[in-house]
Structures are given as C-alpha cells and as structure tokens.
Simulated assay, not measured.
Amino acid sequence: MRKSLLLITAAVLALGAGPALAKKQLVIVVKGLDNPFFEAIHQGCEKWNKENASSDYECFYTGPASTSDEAGEAQIVQDVLGKADTAAVAISPSNAKLIAQTIKTANPSVPVMTLDADLAAEDSALRKTYLGTDNYLMGFKIGEYIKKGKPNGGTICTIEGNTGADNILRRAQGMRDALTGQKGLAELKGEGGWTEVAGCPVFTNDDGAKGVQAMTDILAANPKLDAFGIMGGWPLFGAPQPYRDLFKPMAEKIASNEFVIGAADTIGDEVAIAKEGLVTALVGQRPFEMGYKAPSVMIDLIEGKPVEDPVFTGLDECTKDTVDTCIQK
C-alpha cells in the first residue's frame, strides 16, 4: 500500500512539473554562413553556451547561406524579431540601410544591437550598441602600412565587399584618410600622391574567388599599379591558392615595397600568406571574441544595465616579421 502511494505521488509530481522550459534565445544574425570569419563568431557563441549551461539564456547563431543574400538576411532578422522566445538580437548587417528598414518595420520590443558591422550613423538609434571592430581605425592602419611602403604615393585599387556594408565603407574611408592626410574623400585623384585607377573600388560581395579575379583583371589593365587596399580578407582566406598563384611572381616586388598590399583580417591562410611575404601587412579583427562577448552584452541590455556604445574588440597587426607573435590570444 505504502509503495503504491509513493508511485502515485511521484507520477503526480512528474505530471505537474511538465516539460523543461525552453531557454530564451540570444540571437546572432550574420551576413552569411559561408564565411570563415563568421564561423569564428559562431565558435565564440558556442563557447559562451558551454560556460553558461545553467543559464536561462542560449546563444543562437544564424544567417543566410551566402553573404551575397542581403534579402535573405533581412528576412531572418524579421523572423527572429517576431518569435516569442527571442530575448535579444545582435545583427551584422550586410546592407545597413535594408536592415535598418527591417528593424523599423518590425518595431521590436526586445533589445537590438549590431555586431561586426554597424548601421549607418543616421540609423544608430535603432540599436542599443555596436560590438566589434573600430572599422575606421582598421582601415586607417591599413592605409598607414601602404603609405609607409610607398611614402610618395602611387596608383591604388581598393577591394571592397557589399556596396551597402557600413563596416567596409568605414574601412575604405579610413584608408583614404591615412593615405592623403585629408578627411572624407570618396575617391583619390592625386591627393597625397595617390590615385585610384579606373574600375576601382571593386565590390566582390565577400567572394574570395571573385576578389582574386578582380585583382588579376586590374593588374592586367594597369601593369604599373603600385598597391592594393583589401578591405576584407576574402581573397586571402576564401581563395588562398589562387591568391598565392597571382602574387608569387611578385614576391620580390612586395618584399622591396615596389608593390604594396594592405589587407584586412588574420584568419584562415592569411597569416601563412603573410609569412610567405605575399602581403605587406594584415590588420586583423577578433571575431571569436565578438561571438563570445555578444551574449553577455545582450543580457546586460535585457536587464537594463548600462552598456558602452560602441564596445570595441581590438585589432591585431601582422607583417612578415611579426607573424609568430601578432595574434592576440
């Protein structure tokens, strides 16, 4: 009799407990799942989950299959902002204006922040903070390395990503400002001795192979070109062997600064390429740190705690001579 009562009591308690409550989602939406840079953000997100297994929150990483799918990213943002279990969202906007309009339309009741790439300045009130790289400074440092290699200036081509990506546009502006000593020039026409050649900047939609092909075409059309400013590392980490094939014949020119290449990022094969002397300098971001920090920042926003705006994650600078120690761990 006593045993039967115990079994019945246990069954009632189990029924009363019901299923385990689902965790609230701290959503990270990136430009595309096909980019190793964003996979590093994903790994940071997963590390946070492992270290906070007992939390009521879970870091959830998502994005369109391709970085070229701007509309797909906007649709994902709209969808996650409409879900009941979404507690906060961190977005890396591929097209800043499109994402801004998506946020306006959704009119979210949960905190929204940007990650890696920001909204345009006039839309900044739509998000609580930006977490990631100081993109203007990143571009400025790339420009400083190019200028150090070619102090008297020359001809240059800028390799960019998506036309509406605010982070890439800020880098390009920083590079131009460093090269010329002037602020806000949209194109270089001899200022500071620097001229951007016809057909540049080239927008590659973050496609490495497309970037290498564009550089091949630019070099063929401009055999006396002096420099490339690569605002994202896509040609180096996305198409490393074609990149090597293109620049190995120019290794001596790169070593002597007869030809200068300043590039963004320090992921994938990029540091190895720097060690091989096939790029003058890399200025790298810290995507793993972005993914790891984002959930904690989102929780602070949910709880109404003060959060700085922006929250910068720092830079790493690599040249052939510093590759063994240039990455901040």
Rank of each mutant, 00 (worst) to 15 (best):
K3C: 10
L7E: 13
L7R: 12
G16N: 11
P19R: 00
K24E: 15
I28S: 14
I28V: 14
I28L: 15
K31W: 00
L33M: 13
S55A: 05
D56M: 09
C59L: 08
P64G: 04
D69C: 04
G72P: 03
Q75M: 13
I76V: 13
V77K: 04
Q78P: 06
K83P: 07
K83Q: 15
A100G: 10
D116M: 02
A117E: 09
D118Y: 05
R127H: 11
D134S: 10
Y136E: 05
M138Q: 15
G139A: 07
K150Y: 09
K150T: 09
P151G: 10
G153I: 09
I159W: 01
G161D: 11
T163S: 14
D166L: 12
L169D: 12
R171P: 01
G174V: 00
G174W: 02
D177R: 08
K189A: 13
G192W: 01
W194C: 06
A198S: 15
M215N: 04
A221G: 08
N222V: 07
D226F: 07
P240Y: 02
P249Q: 08
D265P: 00
D265R: 01
I267D: 08
A274D: 10
L278R: 02
L278G: 06
V279Q: 01
L282A: 03
L282M: 03
Q285G: 01
S296A: 14
D309I: 05
V311E: 12
G314R: 03
C318R: 00
D321L: 11
I327D: 07
Q328P: 03
K329H: 12
